[in-house]
Amino acid sequence: MSVVEATNLSRWYGSVIAVNDVTVMVQPGITGVLGPNGAGKTTFMRMCMGLIRPSTGSLRILDENPWNNPNLLKRIGYVPEGDAPWRDRTGREALILGGRLSGLSGTQAEEAADRALQQVGLTNEAGKKVDAYSRGMRQRLKFALALLHDPELYILDEPLLGSDPVSRRELIHLIQGLAAQGKSVLVSTHILPDLEAMTQRILLLNHGRLMAYGEVTEIRDWLDRYPRTVRIATPDPRELGAALWRWPTVLSIQAEEGAVLVRTNKPRAFFEELQGFLADGRHPFTSITSPDDNVEAIFRYLVG
């Protein structure tokens, strides 16, 4: 079952289109929502949370219509953009309030609050006013609010924003842990390495349009028609470059210290030919990598 199922989903504000004819079925697990500013990521997530309605098309979350559906909200944990709430309360009080509003009893809310504080590493700061929290601590508190009622699906809008590297790593581990428990996560971030650390599955939006959805490598393959860069580390880049220059699959060669960068428009054929060429041992090399086989490269390719 898809956790998010959008069919021809569009949403516009006046004459501005925020989400444009998106059709996608997001599978369980962690999915990174990627796109430049204004791509429609937040609008998409807000529609998933029932905060706004689609202008056209349909959207189903966990097989339910999200608009004005309190029952569905019991199954979703949401980390929105912006600051943490209830800043005049202590972190624990804010979490207890969040738990009570999620339908937990007083005792359950207290237990859930303590558990969530522990999960995000804020136990020692539980008695402090939220106002006194650092930005990273507030991000973790927001995350804790999403954890309270143990939902099936997490929708996280820039959850790592403002976190220091250590906190980021901890939160990433937490997200991975949730996925390991069988929870689904829809997470947006601007920090591509963070996203790569969490998942290889992305949903790429640009100007409201769905540019790509799937595993990074699948997308890369799908993008084979676009030129691709291959980096071959070798002690003699000049010689290797000269040898490869005449190949019909090679578009350009660039030598740099300790490596040669080859751009090819037929990567599959190029790799097959390269494998045989290097096998005779006349051209020593230490590694072959494709710098384009990552989220950032795909992002760059698709978004431009």
Binding site: P70, N71, K74, G82, A84, P85, L101, L145
Partner: peptide, 12 residues
């Protein structure tokens, strides 16, 4: 106060 979106996304 930054509370609204948290209230709206609770099952109430």
């Amino acid at each position: 106060r930054g509370n609204l979106v948290y209230l709206l996304t609770r099952p109430i």
